[in-house]
Design a protein around this nucleic acid. Structure first.
Length: 508
DNA sequence: TTCCGACAGTGGGGTCGCAAT
DNA sequence: ATTGCGACCCCACTATCGGAA
């Protein structure tokens, strides 16, 4: 199959707004793709590369060769070149990588070049990713989408699941098993504004678990001496977390799959800022030295397999029993089962006072269903707000093209002027986006660069955020974490906006 | 007919590893 | 030694579609 066949379908998917229409276009192509090219086609059309990352970003793609006129590139040839690019990126010069990228793009038409650029950027923007592709695989193979979804949970990679479904139908899908040592797609949580709302969603009584601000880990014990650890995106971080490996090796069972969170705690037991944990977990060199300075702790909250028994389909409460039997009590995430709102709210206050992120409220009956947010797990976190001043705005991309989208936020400096604390584009409705674009252009002092418009500091906006973190980037040495717009405050003057001192007092 | 769950899109700050400067 | 780039940790929120109620 030619790359252009895939590109044409992607363009048709982009033009079609109805989800069922998108699924129809994708399924049609899956119906005519050969078995050796199915993985590549499914991968590209769900917006990812079979190689995952190949070490090519926006900078590398700034200048690419003239396009060809005739579309002759085959999927397999393109895939093979991308694998070579990845290999060179792993160990080789940038010049060698650039040469291979040039070779790839020189073989593509203009239409194909645009597709490949977006794919490499991870910005296909065709309105279809895994969720839509699951349905397309189901339609093309004749298997129920629940079976496709289930196989994806166990296998963790849709192209392999899709290729199996196209080749062997529903039986091939049902042959997928949880395999110790191979990552499973993790179950994700939805969110609620407060504990009472979360309890309502999860059903009572529910389990309340501490939400720790670290890195999600899936630990596999594969036999007497082997452990593997994966992140939420299924990357292998075993070598970076020796403490966790040792903790799992010390457990009596030698056939386990556990779900948990790893984080750095201070000697007094309170958590380090997320930045400290992230730094430790992502460091690959000097791990032994680093673990002495910043040891990691792990807390498990679910068990997918214990002593060779798969537990994914069991209700939460039964998985908890298995977890408690397999993991020492000190490595269990603190939890409380209750249906009482007052008791739950006290537990929430306690966990926040202990310095942690909040709670995850879990239905006692839900199975471990990967990939689908919001079903059985609901997270709750406290919310801070500040009244800040809009200092500048950046032009948006994609569906926000032509709109001023990303706001530069500043706190008032009592000495005069403003101190930038970060940016946000979140929380804006289309209506607000249109309004602010118009209003900003009235306040514009002129462009500071290609994307940014400086504004007269006159607008006050109420911003919600999760916390203040240390920042090497901004002049005040601090930045807001997960800032989002709540509403504009036309009733407030700039003199009423919060000051940097207020923000600094929150950074404790 | 209305409601709501699931999905895709739009990007945010911070940090590491690596190659080039 | 520093800088630029790519990758990936953490993540909130809105718009939309289409099935459920």
């Amino acid at each position: 199959m030619l790359l252009i066949d895939v590109v044409r379908v992607s363009e048709a998917v982009t033009r079609t707004s109805a989800r069922l229409g998108k699924i129809g276009h994708l399924a049609e192509l899956l119906g005519r793709v050969g078995p050796d090219e199915a993985e590549i086609a499914i991968s590209y059309l769900s917006g990812e590369l079979p190689q995952r990352q190949v070490g090519v970003g926006w900078r590398t793609l700034e200048d690419i060769p003239q396009p060809k006129l005739a579309a002759t590139a085959t999927l397999t040839a393109v895939d093979e070149l991308l694998s070579r690019i990845k290999a060179v990126s792993g160990q080789g010069s940038q010049a060698a990588r650039r040469a291979l990228v040039a070779e790839l793009f020189a073989g593509l038409t203009s239409q194909e070049q645009q597709f490949m650029s977006r794919l490499l950027h991870g910005e296909l923007r065709q309105g279809a990713l895994d969720g839509v592709m699951i349905e397309a695989v189901a339609k093309a193979s004749g298997a129920p989408s629940a079976d496709v979804r289930r196989a994806l949970t166990l296998r963790g990679w849709l192209p392999a699941v899709g290729a199996a479904a196209l080749g062997g139908g529903v039986e091939a899908l049902r042959a997928f098993r949880l395999e110790v040592g191979r990552a499973v797609s993790p179950m994700l949580a939805g969110s609620a504004p407060n504990v009472a709302a979360a309890l309502e969603k999860a059903g009572t009584p529910a389990a309340l678990e501490w939400k720790l601000d670290g890195v999600r880990v899936q630990a596999h014990r594969c036999g007497p001496s082997a452990v593997k650890v994966f992140t939420r995106t299924l990357d292998d971080i075993t070598a970076q977390v020796p403490e966790l490996v040792e903790a799992v090796l010390a457990m009596p069972s030698d056939d386990l799959v556990l779900d948990g969170e790893v984080l750095a705690l201070r000697p007094d037991g309170r958590p380090h800022p997320f930045q400290v944990t992230a730094s430790r977990v992502s460091s690959k060199t000097n791990v032994e030295r680093l673990r002495e300075q910043t040891p990691l702790s792990v807390f498990f909250f679910d068990a997918l397999r214990v002593d060779g028994a798969d537990l994914l389909d069991l209700p939460y409460s039964q998985r908890q029993e298995a977890l408690a039997g397999a993991v020492p009590p000190g490595l269990l995430t603190p939890r409380l089962v209750t249906g009482d709102v007052a008791e739950a709210e006290k537990f929430f206050t306690d966990v926040v006072r202990a310095g942690h992120e909040g709670l995850v409220v879990k239905s006692l009956t839900s199975p471990y269903a990967a990939g689908r947010r919001g079903a059985g797990w609901i997270k709750v976190k406290p919310r801070h707000t500040l009244d800040l001043v809009v200092l500048a705005a950046e032009w948006g991309h994609g569906r926000r093209e032509g709109k001023l989208s990303n706001l530069h936020l500043g706190a008032r400096d009592p000495e005069g002027g403003f101190v930038m604390l970060g940016k946000t584009f979140k929380g804006l409705t289309d209506e607000l986006l249109a309004w602010q674009t118009e209003r900003f252009l009235e306040l514009a002092e002129g462009p500071t660069d290609e994307w940014t418009v400086a504004l007269r500091p006159e607008l006050v906006v109420e911003i919600a955020f999760d916390g203040v973190q240390r920042s090497p980037r901004y002049p005040g040495g601090m930045a807001l974490r997960f800032a989002r717009v709540l509403r504009y405050r036309p009733d407030k003057r700039v003199e009423d906006a919060d000051t940097v001192d207020t923000v600094r007092s929150l950074m404790l």
